[in-house]
Design a protein around this nucleic acid. Sequence first.
DNA 1: GCAGTCACG
DNA 2: ACGTACGTGACTGCG
Length: 561
Amino acid sequence: MSAQLVGISLSPARGEAYYIPVGHVGWEQVEQLPIQQVIDRLKSPLADANLAKLAHNGKFDMMVLAECGITVNNLTFDTMVAAHLLGEKSLGLKSLAFSKLNIEMTPISELIGSGAKQISMSQVEVSKVADYACADADITGQLAELLSAELHQQGLWQLFSEVEMPLVPVLLLMERNGIALDTELLRKMSHQLGEQLIKLESEIFSYAGHQFNINSPQQLGSVLFDELKLPPGRKGKSKYSTEASVLEELRGVHPIIELILEYRQLTKLKSTYIDALPSLINPKTGRVHTSFNQTRTATGRLSSSEPNLQNIPIRGELGRQIRRAFIAPHGSCLLAGDYSQIDLRALAHLSQDPGLLSAFQQDEDIHAATAAQLSGVDTSKVTPDMRRLAKTVNFGVIYGMSEYGLEQATELSREEAAQFIAAYFEKYPKVKQYLESTKEQARETGYVQTMLGRRRFIPEINSSNRQVREAAERMAINMPVQGTSADIIKVAMINLCREMAKRQLKSKMLLQVHDELVFEIPEGELETMRQLVPEVMSTALKLSVPLKVDTKMGNNWGEME
DNA sequence: GCAGTCACG
DNA sequence: ACGTACGTGACTGCG
């Protein structure tokens, strides 16, 4: 949102392209058209919904153009999105041109340099940029032809044209909407945390007998395991691990451990969120604008970056407090709709296991139902501990958990963990069958897929290295489940956006956090949106089990009910 | 630029 | 005997 437009390249046909310079600076540049004249002339064809557009990473171009007052309608083909769907790992235009078309394009560094000497594209002379930018536009067109054929061949066209491409303008809108922050609250928290950290630090130093950098795992390891002679968790060959799970085991052995765990937690939250977020507020809008990345994950999920708004803390009092800094402006409030157990519902649908299906069809508490099944008691007799254990197992299953994994995650012994897993598969036999057939499909075809046919290629599935192979099997098990959930929420986002536009609602979709959508709602639309959001989310796709959606609302993201 | 760590679903 | 749950992104230290 803060990029400056330097020029626009367009290619109307193969081998033909034009460059319109508008933002080049410097003494020897050629004369450029006034930017407003260019905008006025391009505005209508770019907005014309009857004219198809193709681009590489079109969301970026659309963002820059939108900041100039230009709306782009009917982006029908994005070569970056297409390449990602086809399982390409290297998604840059230059690299795709080479791997798919055998064309070696000029690297951008040839124009702007690299490292400290790097200059802005605006400082490069027009004639050089014209050649470079025209090649970009032309090659994008050629790539689109090729990738389009591949998408059709692989059976991915429908997913591409009906889900991934329509999602692009939705994500653009969300990014441009941004979210408001209570900077005053964050400032107070930063101050208070700073004082608390100074105290913690001096206590840690007094136990250590000297000052050191607590943030350096190397220095911390040597203080704990060399100087204080605490037993190192048998991790490293040469180095010590100081990660939280190792330190947890040492709680009670030495008072310094607790202080370090607390210090770690507080510094993490302070540096990553409390201090960083206010600096990312866009001065023009007064809000933070994340990027939602559509081509970063192996499962079909989105990711969020700069800042990542999909990992804002929620656990613990301090985490809650940070969420309270995400606010709705006066006269509006935040509404969140979240899918209840979407991954397990996806598993029920994919496996068609009768036990799982019926539990969801009866709208049972799935973890309690699993606990009841495993112990043979009635659901009403399930204790919180039993439910917690069943929850761990339920999640473990969709991650391809081992006995060892369950042992680590619980209080169970290895034998008990093994018994538990065996009992689980006895109660849910089609889950076991499904997991086996998924691995089998991966071995036979080299890929696994989601409900909508999204694929993940897993070449390591036939590796002779057991560790590599087993890691591949876990990916194979998890992707269809996680990816089906991603399919569902993407369709919901598109449908909601359409419905909101159709009804000319002023409410804004702000965030997606994998199973949750967050909206900013003006007071007058509360009733409408509170009904519309769960309705559209729960009917996004038809599964063998109902999709349950809970909604919450509040003035900030931390206190919603 | 990598490794270690840790925040989220 | 070994090493172990899936998927992300940001910050810090360090070479």
